[in-house]
């Protein structure tokens, strides 16, 4: 797991461990180096700037308080940080989406056909691998997985957006996840 981490990732690991020890300068540096990635995640999921800023703030407050729970043997610091931001964003979405999203314009925007960008040299080995495995899925199932990941939508919301029964959406996603695991772990 800590195997092929980049120099930058190792620096972030170190900064997060120092933050756990109450090092405020390390915390500030960690923020400087990684907040734009976390903010990107919040923006993408919440699609509303003010809310994304609030969630980013909540996430960093939690980073300060929970840094001691970071375990470098389980995940890299950047994964840990993005997980935290993503979880905060999903919490916010779950509060917000008590009322169904029925804006047709927004729906069209969300369900893109195949938005996968080209794989470039800047992408990590892990990303290329995941893309290879995603490409082996049925197009509809691949779209559902991508949509789920980027929007943080529930099964119910995904089913409504793609206009398929809930059971269909669940089996698409579950089958995709099993297939991805097999593909990635071999």
């Amino acid at each position: 797991m800590p195997a092929n981490r980049t120099v930058e990732q190792e620096a972030l690991d170190r900064l997060l461990s120092q933050t756990a020890a109450g090092d405020q300068a390390a915390f500030a540096e960690l923020y400087r180096r990684s907040s734009s990635r976390l903010f990107g995640v919040c923006l993408r999921m919440l699609r509303e700037r003010g809310e994304a800023e609030e969630v980013l703030q909540e996430a960093w407050i939690a980073v300060w308080h929970r840094a001691a729970m970071f375990d470098a043997s389980k995940a890299s610091a950047i994964t840990w940080l993005i997980t935290l931001a993503r979880n905060k964003a999903i919490d916010r979405l779950r509060q917000r989406r008590e009322q169904p999203m029925d804006d047709p314009a927004l729906l069209d925007e969300l369900v893109d056909d195949d938005p996968s960008p080209a794989v470039g040299a800047e992408n990590s080995q892990e990303y290329r691998r995941l893309r290879e495995c995603l490409d082996q899925l049925e197009p509809q199932q691949r779209r559902s997985v991508r949509e789920a990941f980027f929007s943080g939508a529930t099964y119910n919301e995904l089913a409504a957006r793609c206009k398929v029964p809930l059971g269909t959406m669940k089996s698409w996603i579950r089958r995709s996840l099993l297939q991805l695991r097999t593909c990635l772990d071999t």
Binding site: S35, F39, E53, L56, F149, L184
Partner: peptide, 27 residues
């Protein structure tokens, strides 16, 4: 954590975005 390692590389597609400076001041 294993599932995070499998799926999170997809996050590389998300463009980074510099948050406004006042977010840090608030934190």
């Amino acid at each position: 954590a294993l599932w995070q390692r499998r799926l999170f590389p997809l996050g590389e597609e998300i463009a980074s975005s510099e948050p406004p400076a006042y977010v840090w001041h608030r934190i």
